[in-house]
Computed example of a mutant assay.
Amino acid sequence: MAALAQSIRRSAIGLGLFAIITGGTIALTQQLTKDRIQEQVARAEAGALYEIIPESAHDNDLLQDTVTLPPGSRLAIDGPLKGWVPRQDGKPVGLILPAVAPDGYSGDIHLLVGINLQGEVLGVRVTSHRETPGLGDRVELRKSNWVLSFEGRSLENPEPRNWEVKKNGGVFDQFTGATITPSAVVNAVQDTLVYFREHRETILTTVDADDIRTSDEPQPHREEG
């Protein structure tokens, strides 16, 4: 009986040690993987920033010139937003905002949207996603040039009801065999433009664009003489 109890005790200790070692290994692996994923996302973001606003279009350190903006629930991001500000001769020439399309076919699609200070899209890049290879992954520029179709667009071009893929009555192409993914990205880009419009005064003040804001406002009539 004593031998059986001792055997059970040894087995329990062995199982406990195995559980501790296994749990520690899993936790360490998760942490290392998490750090690696975050590093890859940061690298993808940096590359995308310079694709949206090439170095020839600004003369500041784009990675370091950032601003904090009001939360944007429509962009599916919790908390304040981090925006990147390209400048030329000290003056802002646009803003790059992060956004998330929460309704992708396989989950969240993370993207960056560049907007000039008049509210027109400078460029869009997808930085991470889990969409189907060969179908939904065509939102990546290295897989197709579809994402370039947003350049020059605004909330008036096309009009709001046409911010859809063609299958849903809009102007943007869908992919053969994949409609959900491009539709999700279209919606996210439109929501980013709406966010920009809703917070335009705050954004222009934050990026120090007073001259641009006042130039867009009606100027008082001056009498001749």
Rank of each mutant, 00 (worst) to 15 (best):
I180S: 01
A184G: 07
D191A: 11
S154C: 11
S154L: 10
V189M: 12
R125Y: 07
T214A: 10
A209Q: 08
R142F: 13
E140Q: 04
E156I: 03
E131R: 06
E159T: 14
D210M: 10
E131W: 09
L135D: 09
V186W: 08
Y195G: 01
R153T: 15
D191F: 03
D208G: 11
D211Y: 08
L155R: 00
L122D: 12
V189N: 13
F150C: 11
D137E: 05
E131Q: 06
T181C: 12
F172L: 07
Y195Q: 03
T179N: 15
L141T: 09
S154G: 11
K143N: 08
L148Q: 15
S144E: 06
V121Y: 03
D211K: 09
I212V: 12
W163I: 07
D210W: 00
T192R: 02
V147I: 15
R213A: 11
R142C: 07
F172C: 06
I180H: 09
T127R: 05
D173R: 08
L204Q: 03
K166I: 13
A188C: 09
T132H: 05
F175S: 06
L204S: 06
I212C: 02
T176W: 05
N187D: 14
V189A: 13
V186E: 07
E131M: 13
G177P: 10
V124C: 00
D210C: 01
L155P: 02
A178S: 13
E198Q: 10
P158H: 12
G134F: 08
F175N: 03
S149K: 11
V207I: 09
T205L: 08
R197P: 05
A184Q: 06
H129E: 01
P182R: 05
V126S: 01
V207M: 06
E164H: 15
T192G: 03
T181P: 03
T176L: 07
T206N: 09
K143A: 08
L141G: 11
R153I: 04
S149W: 06
T202S: 09
K167D: 15
A178V: 07
T179G: 12
R197S: 12
G169D: 05
N187L: 06
S215P: 02
V147K: 08
W146R: 07
G169R: 13
A184N: 06
G136T: 10
G152L: 07
I203Q: 04
D208E: 12
A209Y: 01
T214W: 02
A209W: 01
S144L: 01
L141A: 13
A209D: 06
F150D: 12
Q190G: 01
N187Y: 01
F196R: 04
R153A: 15
N168V: 00
